[in-house]
Protein backbone atom coordinates (compact mmCIF):
# COMPACT_ATOMS: atom_id res chain seq x y z
CA UNK A 1 0.00 0.00 0.00
CA UNK A 2 1.60 3.21 -1.19
CA UNK A 3 1.60 6.44 0.79
CA UNK A 4 0.49 9.36 -1.31
CA UNK A 5 0.71 13.07 -0.67
CA UNK A 6 -2.44 14.92 -1.71
CA UNK A 7 -1.39 18.39 -2.82
CA UNK A 8 -4.84 19.76 -2.00
CA UNK A 9 -5.21 18.31 1.48
CA UNK A 10 -1.47 18.63 2.05
CA UNK A 11 -1.51 15.31 3.81
CA UNK A 12 0.23 12.01 3.17
CA UNK A 13 -2.31 9.22 3.24
CA UNK A 14 -2.62 5.55 2.33
CA UNK A 15 -3.30 4.44 -1.21
CA UNK A 16 -6.69 3.05 -0.16
CA UNK A 17 -8.00 6.64 -0.23
CA UNK A 18 -6.88 7.19 -3.80
CA UNK A 19 -7.74 5.99 -7.25
CA UNK A 20 -5.17 5.86 -10.00
CA UNK A 21 -6.27 7.74 -13.10
CA UNK A 22 -3.71 7.04 -15.80
CA UNK A 23 -0.95 9.01 -17.42
CA UNK A 24 -0.87 12.75 -16.78
CA UNK A 25 -0.56 15.57 -19.29
CA UNK A 26 -2.51 13.76 -21.98
CA UNK A 27 -4.71 16.75 -22.68
CA UNK A 28 -7.94 16.37 -24.57
CA UNK A 29 -7.47 18.20 -27.88
CA UNK A 30 -9.33 21.49 -28.11
CA UNK A 31 -10.93 20.54 -31.41
CA UNK A 32 -11.08 16.75 -31.71
CA UNK A 33 -12.89 16.91 -35.04
CA UNK A 34 -9.86 18.57 -36.60
CA UNK A 35 -7.63 15.62 -35.82
CA UNK A 36 -6.68 12.80 -38.18
CA UNK A 37 -7.58 9.26 -37.17
CA UNK A 38 -3.96 8.62 -36.26
CA UNK A 39 -3.74 11.70 -34.09
CA UNK A 40 -6.99 10.86 -32.37
CA UNK A 41 -5.86 7.26 -31.79
CA UNK A 42 -2.63 8.57 -30.28
CA UNK A 43 -4.61 10.72 -27.87
CA UNK A 44 -6.91 7.85 -26.96
CA UNK A 45 -4.49 4.99 -26.66
CA UNK A 46 -0.78 5.72 -26.93
CA UNK A 47 0.90 5.90 -23.54
CA UNK A 48 4.52 6.51 -22.65
CA UNK A 49 4.69 3.68 -20.05
CA UNK A 50 8.25 4.59 -19.03
CA UNK A 51 10.55 2.50 -16.93
CA UNK A 52 11.52 5.35 -14.66
CA UNK A 53 9.73 8.51 -13.63
CA UNK A 54 6.15 8.55 -14.80
CA UNK A 55 3.85 11.55 -14.73
CA UNK A 56 0.49 10.21 -13.69
CA UNK A 57 -2.85 11.22 -12.28
CA UNK A 58 -4.44 10.18 -9.02
CA UNK A 59 -7.75 11.10 -7.50
CA UNK A 60 -8.16 11.51 -3.77
CA UNK A 61 -11.47 9.82 -4.18
CA UNK A 62 -12.14 9.05 -0.52
CA UNK A 63 -10.89 12.43 0.61
CA UNK A 64 -11.18 15.76 -1.13
CA UNK A 65 -12.12 13.99 -4.38
CA UNK A 66 -9.68 16.12 -6.37
CA UNK A 67 -7.61 14.88 -9.29
CA UNK A 68 -3.95 15.74 -9.06
CA UNK A 69 -0.70 14.82 -10.75
CA UNK A 70 2.26 12.89 -9.48
CA UNK A 71 5.69 11.87 -10.62
CA UNK A 72 6.52 8.36 -9.53
CA UNK A 73 9.41 6.07 -10.34
CA UNK A 74 7.86 2.96 -11.85
CA UNK A 75 10.95 0.91 -11.00
CA UNK A 76 10.77 1.53 -7.25
CA UNK A 77 7.17 2.81 -7.03
CA UNK A 78 8.53 5.75 -5.03
CA UNK A 79 6.81 9.11 -5.48
CA UNK A 80 9.06 11.95 -6.60
CA UNK A 81 6.47 14.71 -6.40
CA UNK A 82 2.76 15.40 -6.41
CA UNK A 83 1.28 18.61 -7.74
CA UNK A 84 -2.07 20.11 -8.50
CA UNK A 85 -3.94 19.63 -11.74
CA UNK A 86 -3.05 22.33 -14.21
CA UNK A 87 0.38 22.94 -12.75
CA UNK A 88 3.36 22.19 -14.98
CA UNK A 89 5.33 19.05 -14.38
CA UNK A 90 8.26 19.76 -12.09
CA UNK A 91 10.43 18.03 -14.67
CA UNK A 92 12.31 15.57 -12.58
CA UNK A 93 14.85 13.59 -14.51
CA UNK A 94 13.99 9.99 -15.19
CA UNK A 95 15.97 7.38 -13.34
CA UNK A 96 16.55 5.68 -16.69
CA UNK A 97 18.31 8.79 -17.92
CA UNK A 98 15.89 9.93 -20.61
CA UNK A 99 14.61 13.48 -20.35
CA UNK A 100 11.28 13.65 -18.62
CA UNK A 101 9.76 15.86 -21.29
CA UNK A 102 9.68 12.91 -23.68
CA UNK A 103 6.74 11.43 -21.90
CA UNK A 104 4.60 14.45 -22.57
CA UNK A 105 4.66 14.50 -26.36
CA UNK A 106 1.25 12.96 -26.87
CA UNK A 107 -0.54 15.66 -25.03
CA UNK A 108 0.78 18.47 -27.15
CA UNK A 109 -0.19 16.92 -30.47
Amino acid sequence: MLLIHCPYCDETLPEAEFAYAGEAHVDRPADPMALSDDEWAAFLFIRSNPKGVHAERWRHVHGCARFFNAERDTVTDAFVSTYRAGEPRPGTKCSAGAPAGDDMKVAAE
Partner: peptide
Protein backbone atom coordinates in the same frame (compact mmCIF):
# COMPACT_ATOMS: atom_id res chain seq x y z
CA UNK B 1 -2.54 -3.25 -8.82
CA UNK B 2 -4.09 -0.04 -10.06
CA UNK B 3 -0.92 1.81 -11.07
CA UNK B 4 1.68 1.19 -13.76
CA UNK B 5 4.86 -0.30 -12.37
CA UNK B 6 7.94 -2.30 -13.22
CA UNK B 7 8.75 -3.07 -9.58
CA UNK B 8 7.39 -6.65 -9.47
CA UNK B 9 6.30 -5.87 -5.94
CA UNK B 10 2.59 -5.42 -5.49
CA UNK B 11 0.71 -4.60 -2.33
CA UNK B 12 -0.75 -6.56 0.57
CA UNK B 13 -4.40 -5.39 0.22
Amino acid sequence: DQYVSYSQRGGLP
